[in-house]
C-alpha cells in the first residue's frame, strides 16, 4: 500500500534529524579530542610521534569513511564486539574527523610564525608553556574558519551511516520514500533540513573569516 506524504511522515523525518545532530556533535567532540592529540604529535619535536601522527592522518584520509564504518560495524562484530549501529557510527565518524581535524590543526599550529617560538624560548618558556600561552591561542584563531568549514562537511557526511541501519536524516528520507514513493517531496524535505542545519554554520564560518582577516590587517 502506498502512503501519502503527510504531516506525520514529515515529523518522522524531522525527528530523525536529532540523530544526525547527535552524530555530528559526538564525532566533533571525540574526533576533536583525538584530532588535537594528533595535531600535537604531528608538531612534536619527537620524530616517532610525528611519523605516527602523519601515518594516522594519511591512513584516515586515504580510506573511505564507508570502510571505517564497515570495519567498526561488521568487522568488530565478527571479532566478538557487537557494537550497536549508533556506536559503530559514532566511532567511525569520530575517527574520520580526527584525521581531518588533526591535519587542519597541524597547519594552524605551523602557521604561527616561528619567531613566536623563538621569542618565547628566549624568555625561558618551556615547551608546554609555549603551547599553552603563546602558540595555541594564536593557532586557534587561524583554525576557526577551516574547522567550521569541516563541520559543515561532517553534518552532510553523517548521511553515510544510513548504510548500517542508523535511522538518521537520510535513512529516514529513504524509508518514507519507500512507503510514499514521492521522491521530490521527500528528498526535497530532507535536503531542506540539511540546508537549514548547514547554512547558518557556513554563514558563521564566513563571518569569522572576515573578522579574523580584518583584525590581522588592522
Amino acid at each position: 500500500m502506498i502512503r501519502q506524504f503527510t504531516e506525520s511522515e514529515f515529523l518522522f523525518i524531522l525527528a530523525s534529524a536529532r540523530w544526525t545532530l547527535l552524530l555530528t556533535v559526538m564525532a566533533m567532540l571525540l574526533g576533536g579530542l583525538l584530532g588535537f592529540l594528533v595535531a600535537l604529535a604531528r608538531t612534536s619535536h619527537l620524530a616517532p610521534l610525528r611519523v605516527l601522527a602523519a601515518g594516522w592522518i594519511g591512513l584516515i584520509q586515504g580510506v573511505p569513511v564507508l570502510m571505517l564504518l564497515f570495519l567498526s560495524y561488521y568487522g568488530l562484530s565478527l571479532a566478538g564486539f557487537d557494537l550497536p549501529p549508533l556506536i559503530a557510527a559514532t566511532v567511525s565518524m569520530a575517527l574520520y574527523a580526527s584525521g581531518y581535524l588533526g591535519e587542519i590543526w597541524r597547519g594552524s599550529i605551523q602557521a604561527v610564525p616561528w619567531q613566536q617560538w623563538e621569542a618565547s624560548s628566549a624568555l625561558a618558556f618551556s615547551r608546554p608553556q609555549q603551547y599553552r600561552y603563546i602558540i595555541l591561542p594564536q593557532a586557534v584563531r587561524i583554525a576557526i574558519p577551516p574547522t567550521v568549514g569541516f563541520l559543515v562537511q561532517l553534518v552532510k557526511n553523517t548521511s553515510i551511516v544510513s548504510i548500517i541501519g542508523v535511522v538518521e536524516l537520510a535513512r529516514a528520507g529513504n524509508l518514507v520514500n519507500n512507503a510514499t514513493f514521492q521522491p521530490f517531496k521527500v528528498f526535497g524535505t530532507v535536503a531542506a533540513i540539511y540546508f537549514i542545519i548547514c547554512w547558518p554554520i557556513s554563514l558563521l564560518a564566513r563571518r569569522l573569516e572576515g573578522r579574523l582577516h580584518a583584525r590581522r590587517a588592522g
Partner: peptide, 28 residues
C-alpha cells in the same frame, strides 16, 4: 638571566602590551 631583543620585535600579537610583559615573569 639573559634578555634578547630581535630585529623583528616578535611581540605576542594576541596579548596587550601589559600582558606581553607580565606573561614571562608570571609563568616562567
Amino acid at each position: 638571566d639573559v634578555g634578547i631583543v630581535f630585529q623583528s620585535y616578535n611581540l605576542f600579537p594576541h596579548l596587550r602590551v601589559g600582558e606581553n610583559i607580565m606573561l614571562a615573569p608570571r609563568v616562567v
